[in-house]
Simulated assay, not measured.
Amino acid sequence: MPHLGLVALVVRDYDEAIAFYTNALGFDLLEDTRIDDEKRWVVVAPPGARETAVLLAKASTPAQEAAIGDQTGGRVGWFLNTDAFGRDYARMRAAGVVFEEEPRHEPYGTVAVFQDLYGNRWDLLQLNRSS
């Protein structure tokens, strides 16, 4: 059965991106394989993720560099689901993650928008059980 395996995220530097995603967001580093002098295959994912992971892809052209931090035109582009919103919100704030707002309750769940180290917008989201 097909499934979404990887989502690419253009980054400025592999090591700073790995540090942010593993330390601030608590992701696991699943793979870091050197391809050549410039490129690496770097994959991170939330602990326990079974299908989808994030490929950290270093920008290699001026157009890719220009997209760093604005890959979705300012919209939230990624949704980090949690089963314990308060715990993860507090841990991420303590790790220096920038939240744009206080948590809010929506019909679908509890959510707060945060930025990654480049300014890409993410939702931290705990869905209601009925969602």
Rank of each mutant, 00 (worst) to 15 (best):
M1Q: 10
P2S: 08
H3Y: 15
L4T: 09
G5C: 06
G5Y: 13
A8F: 14
A8C: 13
L9C: 10
V10Q: 12
V10L: 14
V10P: 09
V11T: 09
V11C: 08
I18W: 01
A19Y: 04
F20A: 05
F20C: 06
F20W: 07
Y21M: 01
T22S: 04
A24E: 14
A24I: 05
L25K: 12
G26S: 07
G26A: 07
G26D: 04
F27I: 01
F27R: 00
F27D: 00
D28E: 07
L29C: 09
L30S: 04
D32V: 00
T33Y: 12
T33L: 05
D37S: 15
K39P: 03
K39C: 05
K39Y: 15
V43S: 00
V44H: 01
V44C: 02
V44W: 04
V44N: 01
P47N: 03
G48F: 12
A49T: 06
R50A: 02
E51R: 10
E51I: 05
A53G: 02
A53N: 00
A53I: 03
V54Y: 00
V54W: 00
V54S: 00
L55N: 00
L56W: 00
L56I: 01
L56F: 00
L56V: 01
L56P: 04
K58H: 03
A59C: 04
A59D: 13
S60F: 13
S60N: 06
T61L: 10
P62K: 12
P62D: 12
P62F: 15
A63S: 13
E65K: 15
A67R: 11
G69C: 03
D70P: 08
D70I: 02
Q71P: 07
Q71A: 11
G73S: 11
G73Q: 12
G74F: 14
G74C: 11
V76E: 05
V76F: 13
V76Y: 12
G77W: 14
W78Y: 14
W78A: 05
W78T: 06
N81C: 03
N81E: 09
A84I: 07
A84K: 14
A84G: 08
A84T: 06
F85A: 08
G86Q: 13
G86F: 13
R87G: 07
D88H: 15
Y89R: 05
Y89A: 02
Y89T: 03
A90K: 07
A90H: 05
A90T: 10
A90D: 10
R91D: 11
R93C: 06
R93K: 15
A94R: 15
G96K: 12
F99Y: 14
E101I: 13
E102K: 14
P103S: 09
H105Y: 13
E106G: 09
E106T: 11
E106F: 15
Y108I: 06
Y108S: 06
G109S: 09
G109I: 12
V113L: 11
F114T: 02
Q115K: 11
D116Q: 02
L117C: 08
G119I: 01
G119C: 02
R121F: 14
D123L: 08
D123F: 01
L124Q: 05
L125R: 02
L125S: 06
L125H: 03
L125A: 10
Q126G: 06
L127T: 07
L127I: 07
R129V: 12
S131M: 14
